[in-house]
Design a binder for these strands. Structure first.
Lengths: 248, 248
DNA sequence: AGGTCTATGTCGTTT
DNA sequence: AAACGACGTAGACCT
């Protein structure tokens, strides 16, 4: 574990340190007064101010101000970082191909530069995702309704793969769309596309049912469900059981 | 501009420095070997490894590994940060109310701690957004089609506000949905909801038209547009003109 | 606080 | 590389 620090370095020294850190594959932070230009899918300009630039060995770049979870400018993993000194000032460019995108950070002053030698086993275990909800539903199909039988997950349709495909107690095909959180109109549209696809596939004589499974729905989404003859079942993604307030 | 640095501090010294930095409203980075627990809308665990914790004065917290644009764990702005030493080890907790969420970072070792005294005018100027495309359309309505006349933007419907509402050359109402990038099936569903809402509002005798405006469409979305009798116009959000490859 | 929608969304998966 | 959908999406704007 090595940490290399430069405090108020000359731009030329900052450059040398940066290039060493690039070679070593370090995680780098550069704090200083800078201006930022971005051009790619969109484009942006940011006037001079103090920001923290984070450069990762995987090619990501993040420009963070003192506010917000989201960086004010960034570049995704897979980019190439280049550092240089132009007009006596440190400049960091990060380039992406396909789509062609450029991030350009020009420093007036470098207050602080740190290079961290990192290795991370990186084994995040996340619970309460839609995948967890799916497991709950497949293991406890009666939570959807008595007699419901799951036949497949990720079953293909012309509208794309649906979350769960099954049959109800009377043998009618059922499309189930799962959401880990309260749903709006978009999820209803998604379910409807799967139901439509199945109706074309099975023919007009077969009635296809659609069930949206989520902790809750918005009013607008509830109206759309009713209009389209789709059902709703309230389930919590972490427990796989009805939420505490699912009586109404 | 002040930068305070601690290199391999004792946990107790790290705590004192952190609390000073909280008081001053500094932007803080803590680099060290840590484990992370999150519990809230979902929950997660992350085993020990070297990561960079970024604590902002607005209450955001970001845990970054050596990979990815997205932090492995985080807390949004508005949270309260608390530092302590438990069992001789530095611990940082970040708490959010509504929804109740907790981020807990426990350090085995603190390799490096820095507090930055930041102020940022923060005036990002972004071009090529959907708002820009809307301005282009309102200023050059003939780009939609000859005779198109915009009457309102963000016009309310029972399905929510539509981007642009107008009339075509023969006086028929037109709902326009704008997208800054290539669109998929979801955008068609959105436009359809607006058109449906207008049809109910105007009555069955009035034909409502719907136009999707974007640089391009996917095949599936194109099928849905055709099925629903909706139109597509290819426009680029940065130029407001047809993209280079919009002939087909 | 809840609803709806945009985003340089990002990220994973599959074709 | 394109398409499609999930995400602890975040963020903005409105009610």
């Amino acid at each position: 574990m090595t940490v290399t620090t430069l405090h108020r370095p000359a731009h030329r020294d900052a450059l040398a340190s940066l290039e060493d850190a690039f070679r070593r594959g370090d995680l780098i932070t550069v704090f200083g007064r800078c201006s930022v230009e971005y051009d790619g899918r969109a484009s942006s300009s940011l006037g001079a101010g103090d920001r923290l630039l984070l450069l990762k060995p995987d090619g990501s770049a993040l420009v963070h101000t003192d506010e917000g979870r989201t960086p004010v400018n960034w570049q995704p993993p897979g980019c190439d970082h280049f550092a240089s000194v132009r007009d006596g000032r440190l400049r960091v460019r990060s380039v992406r191909r396909s789509p062609e995108e450029l991030l350009d950070v020009r420093f007036d002053r470098v207050h602080h530069l740190v290079a961290y030698d990192v290795t991370d086993p990186d084994d995040l275990d996340l619970r309460g995702s839609e995948a967890d909800l799916k497991e709950h539903v497949v293991a406890n199909p009666e939570r959807i309704e008595p007699g419901f039988e799951p036949l497949a997950t990720e079953r293909e349709t012309t509208a794309g793969p649906m979350d769960v495909f099954g049959e109800d107690a009377s043998g009618r095909p059922v499309a189930v769309e799962l959401k880990r959180r309260r749903v709006g109109p978009d999820a209803v549209g998604q379910l409807r596309r799967y139901v439509d696809a199945l109706e074309r596939e099975f023919g007009a004589d077969t009635t296809i049912r659609g069930v949206l499974v989520a902790p809750s729905v918005t009013d607008r989404a509830a109206s759309l469900l009713e209009r389209d003859g789709l059902d709703f079942v309230a389930l919590d993604p972490t427990t796989g059981r009805p939420p505490d307030d699912s009586a109404p």
